[in-house]
Each structure stands twice: as C-alpha cells, then as structure tokens.
Amino acid sequence: MSDDAFSPEPPPRFLQGLLQSVPIALGYFPIAFSFGVAATRAGLTAPEAVMLSLVIYAGASQFLALALVTSGAPVLVSAFTLIAMNLRHVLYGPALMKQAGSGASRRLAWGWAWGLTDEVFGQALGALARGQRFSERWMFGLGLGAYAAWVGGTAVGALAGGGALEAWPALNAGLGFMLTALFLALLLSILSRAALPAIAVAAVATVIGTLAVSGTVGILAGMICGALAGVVRR
C-alpha cells in the first residue's frame, strides 16, 4: 500500500513501469502473433487485424470477434457479446485505486486506464501490494509496454500470414490451443466459491445452446444464464 506521507522512496517513473511490463510483453507477443495469423487465416487483411488490436485491445474478445465475424453473426449481437465479456474490467480501476491509497492521483486515468488488461492490472496490484508507490506515469509505462507488444505481435503475425505455419504443424497446433489456454487460465484466476454457480450454469447453457442451435447462441446463452445465476443466488 502506498502512503505518500511516510514513504521515503520517490514515486515510480515511466521507465520503471516500462521495465515492469517486460514479462507481460514477452507473454503477449506470441499470443498476439497467433491472433494475427488467425485473423489473416479468417480472411482479414493485415491492416484489419492490426486495427482490431489497436481499437479493441482485449485478447479473448479479439479471438471471439474473429469467430463471430466469420460465422456471419450480426454486428450488434457480436458487439454485445464482446462487451459482456469485458464487463469484469469495471472492477479493476476501483480495486487498483483502493490499493494505491486515498491520495493517489487519478487525473490522467482517461489515458492509462485504457491499458488496464487482466495482466497489467494484476502486475500493478501486485507491485502496490508489495509496497511500491503509485504514480500515473508508472501506469502509463506499464500499460504502454504491454500495448506495444500486443499491437506489434499482431502486426508480425498478420504479415507472416495465415499460411505461415503450415510447414510447422506442431507449432500451428500449439498456437491454435493458445486461446483455450488463455480462457482457462483467466478462469482459474477468477475462480472462487462464490463464482461457482455462475461458472457451472454458464458452462451447461453454452453446451445446450451450441448443440441445440448454434455456437453464437451457445455463447450468448452461457453468458446471460451464468450472469443471472449469479444475481439470483442467495
């Protein structure tokens, strides 16, 4: 927890945040690369793939956007699905500011908060919990390193093209599993006893919706039924 009045160390600088973003960037680059490859394989151009990473900047949402676009789902249904998926980010800013302390500035949050992905949030919260002070320029550095790796990885993957990995079937298979692994790891990161009803209902509703109607209906059914299960539980 940072405490300006009693901490002798100066607030962390932009460069410190950038350095702390290196582990995230190393993880983001190959995932973004596989997104770029998947996007071009799905028929998108390289500029379209990079645009998705620049404008959406949410890994799981972007992979899902590919699936929805290629399945011909209506734009508004797709947008609703992507938006519902990232609603959890609402909690990140308040949780981070609570850890930063009541005197922490949030004047430039309109800028640095764009970079509050799951991993950046986790890294920032962990650093503050270990006693590091909070500063907005540090948050900019932390977020920018991860963002640059994400957009850069997408560009390299998209330029390599959808056929880039055909000569490397095992690498292709591993990258193809990355999305499932990312979702599974995210699920583990938010797993709790309180979340179990929502998770169980969402999983069952997704299977029923997919098998009975289509993949898009399965995704919508899972998210809506799961969220309602969380609201109605006692």
Partner: peptide, 12 residues
C-alpha cells in the same frame, strides 16, 4: 457474476 460467466462460456 458476469466476468466468471463470460470466461466459463468461452472456455467451453
């Protein structure tokens, strides 16, 4: 509930 529901849906 929304976050866990969304992520569980996507795993499946």
């Amino acid at each position: 509930a929304t976050g866990p529901a969304a992520i569980a849906t996507l795993v499946v």
